[in-house]
Design a protein around this nucleic acid. Structure first.
Lengths: 83, 83
DNA sequence: ATGAAATGTTGTGTTTACACAACGAATCGT
DNA sequence: ACGATTCGTTGTGTAAACACAACATTTCAT
């Protein structure tokens, strides 16, 4: 059917040094829910998706995508970082 | 206590001259579902929200918002249209 | 004026995103 | 070593997002 939704929640959570509990509180959900989302066990509501994007101050499309995200290193290089 | 989500689905659908059936087919849902969304009877999944934004070629945040959308005339004026 | 298309509404049923609890394993600071 | 935090997993329950059907009403083209 329709491809599932990929996300970078774990990535951004790591960069912001937040625990699942921290993030859960920031978006008012149960901590387990963050775990389910990160390992793709279920897909968030639009409301939760937008709240998560707001926490990380990124557009929704940078946090969620229908296509799998390319490796971070690609984006870093494309952003101008050189070896 | 969570603020509901506002959307501009009807607006964009009008601009694109699509019927609910048209839009429903474009995002693979039942036509009634579009109606429910437009009148705020229920809130879409992230997947459906992103599909709708993709149909109109706009970022999710332009189609959905936690705060009510300002009147269109405001945006038109701010965009440079003069009386 | 007639009919078709678009819309609004109501109802029933299924699936799933959540809440919440409980537990084991891994990691970390002290 | 120890406890505290984090993470992973499993299970149960509920609310709501959907599908689908049926029908009334409005709008619109001819």
């Amino acid at each position: 059917m329709t491809h599932d939704i990929h996300n970078r929640i774990a990535l951004f959570r790591a960069e912001h040094a937040m625990s699942r509990r921290d993030l859960a509180e920031a978006v008012s959900v149960n901590p387990q829910t963050i775990g389910y989302l990160e390992r793709g066990d279920y897909k968030p509501s639009l409301e939760l998706g937008m709240k998560l994007a707001r926490v990380f101050a990124v557009p929704v499309e940078l946090l969620f995508s229908f296509d799998p995200f390319p490796p971070m290193a690609d984006a870093l290089r494309a952003a101008g970082e050189r070896p």
